[in-house]
Simulated assay, not measured.
Amino acid sequence: MGGRKSGTNKKDGIINPHISSVTGVNVFDLFVRIDLRDGETGFLVKEYEVENIVDSFSLSFYNDAGFSYVINTTGDVLIRPPHPNSNKTVQNLFDMLPVTQNSENKIREFAKALEDFRTGWAVFAYQEEQMVFCYTPLKLQSDWYLISIISRNVVEKRTNEILMRTMTLIASIILGIFLLVAFYVRYVNRTDRKLGNQAEYIGHLYNAVPEGIALITQEQPLCILQLNREGLRLLEYPEDAQNDVPKGNAIKDIVHPEDYEQTIGFFRDTAENDRKNRFENRVMRQDPYSEDKLAILISRRNGPPG
Rank of each mutant, 00 (worst) to 15 (best):
R165S: 14
Y135K: 02
L163E: 14
T159K: 06
M164T: 15
T191M: 11
A171D: 06
I173C: 13
L179D: 08
L205K: 12
L195V: 08
T191W: 12
S148M: 05
K194Q: 12
P137Y: 02
V185I: 08
R158Y: 01
I202T: 11
R165D: 12
L180R: 09
D143T: 04
T191C: 10
N197E: 15
A182S: 15
L195C: 02
R158V: 02
N160W: 07
M167G: 04
I170L: 11
Q141V: 04
Q141I: 05
S148Q: 05
L138W: 02
A171C: 06
R190D: 06
N153S: 08
R193C: 13
Y145K: 00
V188R: 13
N197F: 07
I147W: 00
L163A: 10
L169V: 08
R186Y: 12
N197D: 15
N189Y: 09
S148G: 02
F183K: 12
T136N: 05
I177G: 03
E200D: 03
D143R: 03
L180P: 04
T136E: 03
L205M: 07
H204M: 13
Y184F: 11
T191R: 15
S151M: 03
H204T: 10
R190F: 10
A199E: 14
L195A: 04
F133S: 01
H204P: 04
D192R: 05
Y201I: 09
K139G: 12
D143H: 07
L179A: 08
I177A: 09
Y184R: 06
I162H: 04
H204Q: 12
V155N: 00
I150K: 00
L180N: 08
G203S: 09
V188E: 10
C134I: 14
C134P: 02
Y145T: 01
Y184A: 11
N189Q: 14
Y135P: 00
C134F: 10
Y184H: 06
M167S: 15
G176Y: 07
W144F: 02
I147H: 00
G203F: 01
L140K: 05
W144A: 03
E161D: 07
I173M: 14
I170V: 09
I173Y: 11
F133Y: 03
G176D: 09
V188C: 12
R190N: 10
T168N: 14
N197M: 10
F133I: 00
L179I: 05
G196L: 05
N153T: 06
A171N: 03
E156V: 11
L163Y: 03
S151F: 02
D143W: 01
R158S: 06
V155C: 03
E161G: 02
I149E: 00
L179P: 01
Y184W: 05
K139S: 14
T168K: 08
L169A: 15
I202M: 10
L146S: 07
L138E: 07
T191N: 11
V154W: 00
